[in-house]
Design a protein around this nucleic acid. Sequence first.
DNA 1: ATTCCACCGGAATAGCGGGATA
DNA 2: TATCCCGCTATTCCGGTGGAAT
Length: 331
Amino acid sequence: MIRNARVLLDDFLPREVVHRHEEMNRLAGALEPVVAGDRPQDALLVGPSGAGKTCIARYSLDRLQEQALGVDTHYVDCWQHSNRFRLLYKILEGVGTTYDVHRSTPHDELLRRLEELSDPYVIVLDEVDQVEDKSLLRELYAIPEITMVLVANRERDVTGTLDERLRSRLRSGETIRFGRYSDEELVSILEDRVRWGLDPDAVSRDQLDRIAAAAAGNARDAISVLRLAARDAQRDGADRISDERIEAAIPAARREIRQKNAEKLSPHQRTVYDLLVEHGPLAPGDLYDRYRAAVDDPRTRRTIRSYLTKLERYNLVESEGEGPSRRYRSL
DNA sequence: ATTCCACCGGAATAGCGGGATA
DNA sequence: TATCCCGCTATTCCGGTGGAAT
């Protein structure tokens, strides 16, 4: 039933981007000058998850790579490389100068290599709001050869933490805002994936409607649901996907992401998370008391606070309220 | 309006572990 | 093998903040 599983994966990049031509053209317009040897504009892509930001950014890099010789491009997911060293390392990977970099290489050396670039280098920094060391962004901006395409959910997550110089530099670039996909658009995206990856009658139009409605404009979620449903059907030897499988896949897709993140937690972090899952919204003090009662060698309050910001980063936990009225709850 | 308290998160610091080097 | 260096995690200290109490 599955003919090409690859097209249902998260990182699959279609040969053509649908429903995002306007955004596509603006980004291409910003980067295009580099083909003629001129200085391209930096860009900022903002919008909700699954709205096509990453897709457009990666697609544009590929196009650029085809059009221009002597232009390096690279995509970096800041989520997985949030500290200074890892991010620099990842960026250097794109120009192939990491052959002799190891942990004892001074950071300055990494930055110096970037400063010595002689060819234009266009980098996409996805989830850029996750970068811990914001001064690194400024240092990267200072390198003339580097053009940055920043990707984030909310504009203020990026601009709010930067200094004024960097902010004005960003404003002079291209800011492209993405909205959620409509249900119609999601369905047509799903139809493409079905055509490329599944047997033609494996899924009905009504079922795609259902998936689109559940995904609330998030293409990544919609595709995940389709992937899970198809995988289950395939495993059981069915030749088409039943409605039940779709319904089961909708919550399962969300659970899957959370589960993956939860597996990355240390035992102490896991305890904190489990306490929130079990006991609903908790005040920080209350949470800490319970935590201390639950483990043998408790970490300090400050450490638990760091855990909680990490849990929020992983979308496992949500906080509301400020100061003393703050409450944490599991998602 | 002012004070108070719990909480937030940055900065400096120490110990640990792993890879590189001599 | 011993040593060094660095990143990582946790700790300590502390200034800032916002809701609640006075």
